[in-house]
Amino acid sequence: MPIDKSMHVLIVDDYKTMLRIIRNLLKQIEFNNVEEASDGADALAKLRAGSFGLVISDWNMQPMTGLQLLQEVRADARLKTTPFIMVTAESKAENVVAAKQAGVSNYIVKPFNAETLRDKIEKVLGHG
């Protein structure tokens, strides 16, 4: 079954330039139904209010980090199965381990390219 590219995708980053870049890269791989959140708390509110098929989140944000957002998502009965990709400059092994233990679906280290983004999305959505 092909990937449903009309799915609602939430991108989370406190750096508006990065949101713009990810949104454009998603557009180029035909994901056009994209919503933005500027931090973990904003993202959690949007996730609880809406219906999203994928979350792509930065880690290093204040006041709620991407890891805390992931933990909240996994602890929420309605959201816990939502695919969650961490896109971050945090590239230490302990970060990857912590994210995995918190239930991350995949992990992309910045700087990344469009091909990596496409590849990880396909893997997370079961087409990789």
């Binding site: 980053d13 330039t17 990065m18 870049i21 454009n24 890269l25 180029q28 400059a89 910045k110 469009a114």
Partner: peptide
């Protein structure tokens, strides 16, 4: 489109240098 993709990718430098 390939060229604009490369530009988008390259622009992420700003996030990295900012951090």
């Amino acid at each position: 489109q390939d060229a604009t993709t490369r530009i988008y990718e390259a622009c992420s430098f700003q996030d990295i240098t900012g951090q």
